[in-house]
């Protein structure tokens, strides 16, 4: 059994930030996935979703649920990340002043993602976009 879903994310649209994560959470609950695992997945997915909203122009989230895992691929068209190593450092952020005033952009997002996923791969091309691939085992 494989369940696949795709969600479209618009850059800058904070009024719908988290909608895709919320749908995935409901789906995992229906499938009876362990609550602690759902928590980890939801934390990572929300942060990655918000990153597209806060930084990119648009993006797609594709999720694939198999018997023992969920794989999430988030691909955006956006400014890309110049130095992924630096972006991974807790507290480092390139978020705008407006985004920070909302309580985002504390430089905690990528660490939250890393802490809550079993596999995390980030590839990026400056001026083109970023791809985040993450896997959580049930």
């Amino acid at each position: 059994m494989v369940i696949e879903q795709t969600y479209f994310i618009r850059g800058g649209d904070f009024s719908h930030a988290g909608d895709a994560s919320s749908k995935v959470k409901k789906l995992l609950k229906q499938l009876g996935v362990d609550a602690r695992k759902i928590k980890n997945i939801v934390i990572a997915l929300y942060e990655a979703e918000v990153n597209i909203v806060a930084h990119a122009w648009e993006g797609m989230i594709r999720i694939s649920i198999e018997a023992d895992r969920i794989s999430c691929t988030l691909e955006d068209k956006g400014p890309g990340i110049e130095d992924i190593g630096q972006a991974m450092v807790e507290g480092y952020s390139t978020a705008s002043k407006e985004v920070r005033e909302m309580g985002f952009g504390a430089g905690m997002g990528l660490s939250n993602i890393k802490r809550n996923t079993d596999v995390l791969e980030i590839t990026s091309e400056v001026g083109v976009g970023t791809k985040v691939y993450m896997v959580n085992y049930f």
Partner: peptide, 16 residues
């Protein structure tokens, strides 16, 4: 407990 007054607060509250 917060001083943030926008809807993203509710998105986080709901997810967690």
């Amino acid at each position: 407990i917060t001083l943030q007054t926008h809807q993203n607060v509710l998105a986080v509250a709901s997810l967690r």
